[in-house]
Design a protein around this nucleic acid. Structure first.
Lengths: 206, 206
DNA sequence: TAGATTGTTAATCGATTAACAATC
DNA sequence: TAGATTGTTAATCGATTAACAATC
């Protein structure tokens, strides 16, 4: 879509802009300045304008930004204006929490199935199929899946990720405590709770 | 403890060093070079040496690092050599998953209690007290708590965080989809799943 | 000894901040 | 018009990388 290379730093802030703009829209606020955005997000106004200018000129000189317009633009930039289909690999505690996670709707993501080696113990959630991992490849052949959510133990994370990638999935959302990296055409985000907790404890020592 | 100001970038890598060193120790590998570490972690050898040198000289010129020694040093630097007590605020799906999360043991963190406005529906986990939020302040007065884990809806996250901070808690691990910031003597790490998912979808558009 | 590798200083690179002309 | 605020260019700052003397 965009072809300029956007730095990871900027990408990190994009969801924050979106979230804030959604708040403003919900509160019927129609205009906002880079200064106001920057204050809310603990960054500088310069940075806000720099970041946004990577994707185009959304504001009006002397006036600011139209919240509704900028919100919609952010939605498109992020790609969450279109629906995405996800499956969950691993139905343990975290997997279970994920399939009933409310936040998916906000970003237009729909979990369609959960896979595990043992399906009996899994409680069903409406709209989410419960399947055995053995049928993973078959499922992926028949169904379009945009995102595979990995919530298995760290020993199995890499091999499960490889299986879905071999079957054509291009996006991995990984909850196992191991950093997954793949080739250039597969994207991955790691939610590493244990690393986050270590950083918290580190920072608390001052 | 340390008084030099360590940049957020370095802090992000500390848990990764620790994890890798633990792996090496488990595999009975006794020595490692900055080059080997850097390859495993997808960074440069220079960076490894720069990072470690912030905390002292752990290696031996011409030889490398003793894995056991460096692992223990990292453990101390991170502060996870000492046990930390945590409580969970919010017994929803994420809260439930957290109280039975195995990863806590690795970082010497122990969840002692979970608080919710409705305690009946909460299944008990051995060693974890189930309590009503109304008794939060009383509990904090009687028990030492190092970390408060916030897993309530975003509307309640800030107010719950404030309550535990007022009661003396200095570290907040926040799972609500809102960035919490506090004064200089309170540290906070946000696990923002919805932001991570947006970044994943953004990156998948190339 | 020769090769390997550290810790540190200097050079480079990239990201953040400041400044300002354009303009509503 | 005067004040506000954008988008962009230039200046600054900080983090990463390179280089190398020290030394095992």
């Amino acid at each position: 879509m965009e072809n300029k290379q956007i730095s990871e730093r900027v990408i990190e802030r994009l969801p924050k802009y979106y979230r804030y703009l959604k708040d403003l829209c919900n509160n019927q606020i129609q205009r906002v300045s880079s200064k106001t955005i920057s204050t809310a997000l603990n960054i500088t106004a310069s940075q806000v304008r720099q970041d946004l200018s990577h994707f185009g000129g959304f504001g009006q000189t002397g006036v600011g930004y139209d919240t509704e317009y900028l919100k919609n633009a952010m939605q498109e930039i992020l790609g969450i204006n279109k629906p995405h289909v996800a499956i969950v690999i691993g139905g343990g505690r975290i997997g279970q929490a994920l399939i009933s996670y409310k936040g998916f709707v906000d970003v237009n993501v729909f979990v369609k199935a959960v896979f595990d080696i043992e399906t009996e113990h899994l409680s069903t959630v409406s709209g989410v199929e419960v399947l055995n991992v053995s049928s993973l490849e078959e499922y992926l052949q028949k169904n379009r899946v945009d995102v595979a959510i990995i919530s298995v133990q760290k020993e199995f994370a890499e091999v499960m990720a490889k299986r879905v990638i071999d079957a054509g999935v291009k996006s991995i959302w990984n909850f196992a405590p191991i950093d997954l990296h793949f080739g250039p055409d597969v994207v991955c985000e790691n939610i590493n709770m244990s690393e986050s907790l270590m950083r918290l404890i580190y920072k608390s020592h001052f």
